[in-house]
């Protein structure tokens, strides 16, 4: 009897160990590149330029790479500020427009509603690189070329189809009767949207916000083409400049510290909103 118990315990221990070992191995695979970047970013510049093994700093920790990066061009804070402004503005404008449009598509009936919706969604299928030239010309005509509002407009346009689709689904998942109840309670459309509907579609909003933030924070091509003034560069464009080096020498430490710097807000935002994000993506999957 006790033998059987011991055998069961051994089997369970083995299963648990195997489960955690596999999990740990897979986690290491995912963490390794990030850890490597982080470790290299803390090597002194001279060491960072040498062959990368071992990955950890052997000549002592140093923030030299970060200092070099901070002094790059017109200063890292200008670029980070530009990126943050563009990403935040893109998030705010995308959320507001997709919230209202999603509500409209979900709740109101108007002629050609479905056609219009399909039309909006179908723009996702156009590769955006193919329309960069016309976009550039339009922005120039509008006097928005080489401005941050111009690039925000482009990003918002690119993210709206997905965002509207996401928000329409989020509103579709809210029972109509809740809205009826709010109307009986005397709520106006805007008050109802703000106090009743918004909290209920928050997972959708979080998903839209994360996508818009990540995409606009990391976007490179449009920023590279539309921004010509070095003072208006966003972080990805600056990173490309760091990566291409000066006079043939590349400061690998600065590149890795740039990677860390660019990753930090994305990670923070995702960790902050991940609960909502997952709920947003799976909304309506089960009742």
């Amino acid at each position: 009897m006790s033998n059987r118990k011991a055998a069961t315990a051994r089997r369970r221990l083995f299963a648990v160990t195997r489960y955690h070992a596999i999990g740990l191995f897979i986690s290491l695979l995912f963490i390794a590149p990030i850890a490597w970047s982080a470790l290299v970013s803390f090597k002194p510049s001279s060491e960072a330029a040498r062959p990368p093994l071992p990955p950890w700093p052997v000549e002592g920790f140093s923030t030299q790479s970060y200092e070099n990066l901070a002094k790059y061009g017109v200063g890292i804070w200008t670029y980070a500020g530009n990126s943050l402004t563009v990403a935040a503005a893109t998030v705010v404008v995308t959320v507001i427009i997709s919230l209202l449009a999603g509500y409209g598509f979900s709740r109101f009936n108007f002629p050609l509603k479905n056609l219009l919706f399909v039309l909006i969604i179908s723009t996702v299928m156009i590769p955006f690189q193919s329309i960069l030239t016309p976009l550039f010309l339009i922005l120039t005509k509008l006097g928005l070329q080489n401005t941050l509002p111009g690039i925000v407009l482009i990003y918002v346009t690119l993210h709206l189809p997905f965002s509207i689709f996401m928000m329409r689904n989020a509103f579709d998942a809210v029972p109509k009767e809740i809205e009826d109840a709010a109307r009986v309670d005397g709520a106006s459309v805007l008050l109802m949207l703000r106090r009743v509907m918004l909290p209920l579609v928050l997972p959708g909003v979080a998903t839209v916000a994360i996508f818009a933030f990540l995409a606009s924070w990391n976007e490179f091509l449009a920023a590279l083409i539309l921004l010509t003034d070095q003072k208006k560069y966003t972080l990805p464009v600056m990173m490309a400049a760091v990566r291409s080096g000066q006079f043939g020498s590349i400061d690998w430490g600065a590149v890795q510290s740039g990677v860390m710097l660019m990753m930090a807000p994305c990670l923070a935002l995702f960790l902050l909103l991940q609960g909502y994000y997952i709920r947003g993506l799976t909304a309506g999957a089960v009742k």
Binding site: E177, D180, A182, G186, L200
Partner: peptide, 27 residues
């Protein structure tokens, strides 16, 4: 609806899920 002097009880209850019972009643 709010100006008709009516109150309605729905089949699916239609309570505001993000509000407490007190807030539901007070809304």
């Amino acid at each position: 609806p709010a100006k008709r002097g009516i109150a309605m009880v729905f089949q699916s209850y239609a309570l505001y899920p993000h509000m407490s019972v007190r807030e539901n009643l007070a809304f």
